[in-house]
Design a protein around this nucleic acid. Sequence first.
RNA 1: GGCGCUAUCGUCUAGGGGUUAGGACGUGAGAUUCUCAAUCUUAAAACACGGGUUCGAUUCCCGUUAGCGCUACCA
Length: 516
Amino acid sequence: MIESVMESGTIRVRFAPSPTGLLHVGNARTALFNWLFARRMGGKFVLRIEDTDLERSKSAYEKKLIEDLVWLGLTWDEGPNENDPGETGDFGPYRQSKRIDLYSSHTAQLLAEGKAYRCFCSPEELDEERRRAADEHRPQIYSGKCRKLSKQEIKENLLRGKTYAVRLKIPDHPIKFHDIVRGDLEFAADTISDPILVRSAKGGTAGASPGVPVYNYVVTVDDALMGITHVIRGDDHISNTPKQVAIYEALGWKVPEFAHLSTILGPDHERLSKRHGATSMSSFREMGYLPEAMVNYLSLLGWGAEDGKTETFTAAELVKAFTLQRVTTSPAIFDFEKLNWMNRHYMKEAPPGRLASLCWDYFGGLLPEKEEASDAVLVWFFHVIGLFVPSVSHLDEIPAKAAFIFHMDPNLARTDQENAEALAAGSAQTVLNELANHARAHAGPVSASDFAGWMNQIKEAAGVEGNELFHPIRIALTGTHSGPEFEKLIPLIEQGVELNLGIPSVRERLDAFIGV
RNA sequence: GGCGCUAUCGUCUAGGGGUUAGGACGUGAGAUUCUCAAUCUUAAAACACGGGUUCGAUUCCCGUUAGCGCUACCA
């Protein structure tokens, strides 16, 4: 089966996260590049859950992980199903915890062929070896002591019930492999320790070790058995790769192509972590970032368009443009500002209805339940959101910006530092008196043109214009000296009043502030 | 300590033996708008250092330095 897949030329890649936490920026970018490569090449994208670390793995994280991948639009062809505990694909199981029986036959084979051996060394002995190597400025690699054990010695150890681990014999020639991103990589044999394949356990006198296989062994066997042709992953795995290559070769399997992606760092050049703020996909989603902005931004971390200029790509455009050859080698710093810019870009393009429904929950308590809201309320809310979107980087900032629509505190408006300055101007009181007169003389809701008319008359009567005119009025009406233009704002306020959303009318606002 | 990866504006990057070293974010200035945001125009801003190779290196090679990763019977 493996051979047939390899020979068919179908490209198969995998994303193999362990469900020990949320999907963060680095892993999301790895998933994205795998996905892009698979889609671009017409290959298969496999999701494999590496949940062998039972202590840290949680099914809740697996669920969240799947949610986040779906949110980003990185759909997989094989792997755990999105909505049920089942799996899709012919190369399963796709959860590593269900695969633990698959490795022992290969271990037995390696042992039988003399490509692996039993290592009876104790942790203490190994520690001692390492310590000595460090003292002598040598690479800290295993001495290979147990390689030389005679059959007789092994038998005796087994008979005495000594525990042993299984180690691979690293061949004594340099290990080379090709990395699509970095070119040919080569590691000298004497810098690579014989890797443990299977952890120590009390073995029987026959058969393979009953111990638990280690990560490097497991991924290699899994990748091979799943017919993975291209391993695209973080560059923290470069040092693991020669060991894995040796495993492929010992088992007589074709070595896949590798592509090691550079690390994503925080602004302080440290590895990106929670310390730097939001880094998980779910937190970005909660903050109201759009998935297409996230995908686009992530794609630019370690990759660039061929023309050297294009920055914005839809997912489809990315699939068309993406090549591993253009992936960059140096580490990239995650720039929240540029992500924000990207999100603003996509918010401008998004239909207001979509943004409004994403925002609804941010306005908890101020609006009816979305399901119970009338069409008129929905439309009104679309407009409110549309009014504030240009002034925010992500959707969850909107409620604070829009708060004055729902309620206004005249005392706060008066005492706010910057407001106080504007109100202290000599003309401010005149302007406000004039405004009060107009409001007094007006019955019913105020239209945008009513208000524009007032403005013109106040301008003449008070003999002021510009900030001196508009600042006091804006403060009287909204409690702040900055915000959306009156022409759009006034109708929205009066409509909101009519919809019984409990928001103060133009007249009520002015009354509270200046007494009408 | 050992092994490895990396090095172009503050950041993401394009480029590549001879270029005014290009674009984007951010920043400054200007325009527009009642304000803020948005928008438009515009400016400043980079080839880490030292040796080679070469007529010529930012580009190729070597070294230094710095950053990062790995160095587990973790994944």
